[in-house]
Amino acid sequence: MKTLERQREKMESLGQLAGGVAHELNNMLQPIFFAVDAIQKRAKDDDVIQASSKKIISCTTKAADIIEDILAFAREDSDHLCFINMKETFEHALSFSKDLLPKTIQVSLSPCPKSDYWAWMNETDMVRLLTNLLTNAADSMEQKGKIDVKMDYIFVLKDDPNRPEIINDVLKSGRYACVSVADEGRGFPREEIERIFDPFYTTKEIGEGTGLGLSIVHNILKNWKGGVNVSSVEGKGTVFSLYIPVCRTET
């Protein structure tokens, strides 16, 4: 498809631009970290200098985190993929991502079926996916409420009319793990679905979100030859579904 190809090229050049900018900015943040350390050590008894230095460090750290997100978004590291046990990796990544949420958020995981499916991916990205979806869900519920997480295996038949559109658009026929994250948060209208995956699209306050989370999610899944789908009801909640290609091992 022409438009898809054009979109891919656009993302590639955007990725390169982002990578270049991130590299330059990291080189500029580095001296700030080192210099403020020197200042701190030389004025140990000066409260104002100590407090100001802490501010510089925390702001620089935040800036570094934003750059880290931009890099994650820009990266094409399909060469770092390897075969991983789907269930194990998913459960491991989930327990890690869960710990980043406040205690007022309850994450319930439905039992995962069979464990002999393997996926061509990597665990760091899996953590990144879940962390992004879980923090978004928590944000949409103002940090209190329940998030339902599920993992299931499905068989996708191309052009099956009963499947959500993303599947017919993106996924080849075959077996997939479907990870879904459901919240009871603010939800959003249909028009917004088109925008939430755009880089830098955010409805959050400055300093609270950069709008890169979902574009990273989208890129990671593209890299794994999977896909992401979303359904949302305004005022009720949202379900994100991730499709990850899996295969069964011979035993």
Partner: peptide, 14 residues
């Protein structure tokens, strides 16, 4: 390193 700018550099970092 402050991160790779493209896939060739990515390879160098690796």
């Amino acid at each position: 390193s402050g991160g790779a700018t493209d896939s060739y550099n990515e390879h160098i970092l690796g």
